[in-house]
Design a protein around this nucleic acid. Sequence first.
DNA 1: CGACCAGGAAACGGC
DNA 2: TTCCTGGTCG
Length: 746
Amino acid sequence: MDPILDGLNEKQREAVLAADGSVLVLAGAGSGKTRVITHRFAYLIREKNLKMENILAVTFTNKAAGEMKERIARLTGESTSRAWVRTFHATGLMIIRRNPETIGYPHNFVIYDADDSKDIAGSIMHDLKINTTVYKTGPIMHAIFRAKDNMITPGEYEKDAATEIEKVTASVYREYENRLRENFALDFNDLLLMPIRIFRDNPRLLEYYQDLWRYMMIDEFQDTNIAQFQFMKLVVSRDRHICVVGDDDQSIYGWRGANIENIYKFKRDYSPAVVPLEQNYRSTQLILDAANNVVNKIPGRMEKRLWTSRSGGEKIGLIETMRETDEARVIAETVRELSAKYKNSEIAIFYRTNSQSRVLEEAMLRANIPYRIFGGQKFYERKEIKDVVAYIRLIINPFDRQAFERIVNIPARGVGNVGRQKMIAYAKESGISYVESLMKSGEVSGIQRESVRKLNDLGQVLFELNQSLEQITPTNFVKILIDSIEYKKYIREFDETGPDRWENVEELVNSVKEFEESGDTSEKKTIVDFINSITLHADIDDLKEEEERETVSLMTIHNAKGLEFPVVFISGVNDGLIPHSNSRHSPEQMEEERRLFYVAVTRAKDKLYMSFSGSRLVYGDLIPTKPSVFLLDIPSELYDEIRTHSTYEPQRRTPGKGVGKFTNPPAAPKEEPAYTYEGKVGGAEKGSSVSGMDELKPGDRVRHPNLGAGTVKSVSAKLMQIEFDNWGLRAMGGNFLSSLRKIEAK
DNA sequence: CGACCAGGAAACGGC
DNA sequence: TTCCTGGTCG
């Protein structure tokens, strides 16, 4: 009896036994890759006589890391507290924290999240007098992040900048890097870039880590970026004991700088032993068939064919409605019906964009179904939380300009934009920290006497808290801070949301306490540790295996990566959402959309529902929409009876708001389907009418009054795909039939 | 300075 | 629909 090797299938065992050298595990969805990684980890410990810290295992989320550690502990019977099982970012942070002097940073550096970075960009653009109505901080930061993902320096970026926007971005990028350094701050990318620099500049340190990490494993390799590849390359350059696990079909983070090429490049450059895992332990065969049909349209992918011993399976439930509100309600009703068979926690509802969650949320509320939303407005992005966190940051690092700017007038101390800039200039000229500048605000011209008093007091408070950073427990630290700045009074009276906001602050204090008492309590934790932990925190990390409250999970498809649920609803399976309209003009992005849909489908274990709506509210306008083209790639026999719900009593609306109006009113249902098409191609309507889908087969020529002539490409029970001569491929539902005519072939 | 309002832009996904 | 910015006024 060998707990490490028994119970693995042949391929899984092969991956585990391939201990030395380079290994590429092509792990299809649900093929037990976590199992492979954890068992391989345990196997290496045992067979290679390694200690926990001798293997570096990189995961995609903190949640995955936690689960793996737990399973490794169970397998080996040893504590994993010293094991390096972490995300790339957390690994990088660890290296920097141990050696901050090598990059000229003090030990109390801070980490900025994407929001902070955007704030800095705004501040820089103000300083550089860049017109912020023409150039937006969002796209500029996006470009800078992509540059950093690809390890392009400001200098290189500037050199290649051709267009005006690129030149502007180059100047912001340069200043952005300066600003980070001035603030002793690092952004997410730096958590990878700095370790790379540290390793390159300090061969001894690299050697130290190569001695430490004799073996390396990387999960979700298809979603790594160039910097991460570089990091790996350095770490394994000596012994080349590297095992990467990935699935090119599940690469969905190209927009975040992930480079699907990495997995192909690894195969080329490292000549690894390739182990494909194709047996799926999650879904029914029917769900896999649907998934395979979606993804096998992508050219150049590594050919895989998922299979399972769970033959058959329930068909895919299709839900079609006229309105999003109906769609959400039918989903809620279906969830209710399912409660006889499934717990709420076994059910998930996915959507493409966060904005779709609101309607779903309202439907769940109305149906009295407990739910939990992941993502969206995140806890740590709330104003009240960011305020308190900014205070803590400024105390930790009194040179943090971003934090100072945020809190100097919260609560109001009579310092506006002008006074704020003066204080920053004063601090910079005198070479003192912002906390010191508070205490000397009397010397800054133009600050009101009353303000000076308040700022002096504030400086005193922050200074004293800084002195006691290491002494006070994190919980007491936060409590004292909130007390001394009278934040409760301020936030409760902020506006009508004040009381809720105060509750969030209390929640923050609770999570500090939880942090303090979690994990290894023998190690003394400080508030600095807490701040670092929340910066790398992902919403999905909070999803517990046994959520005490029995809640349905609502999340984006991106958030669903790596998860599984017995019942999955994919909502908003509409053209423009999935595939998203912003991807329409890029073949690469369209492929990523397809993979995203594939990821959604493969999350389901037993039962899958897909829903789409004939119209959607976009910025308050009711817009007619078509079903997603992806639906047509799934053979019709895999779909269950379609559930159409189009006539419902009008929703009660808040007075004065009115009911949404079609901006392009659809014609009467008889002539026009719920899905209307732009375009006006005339043409006589000759030919024979079509009354049922079964009258059409691929190759048939048809004519539509608006779209003209076209060729039928595929027909399923509910949907058909027609290639129009002038308008290209279109997907349409059954209610199109009445307007179609069968015509003679050309 | 800061409260308030109007007008315009916007939200694809997130460590 | 919601969010943000820029302008005005007390």
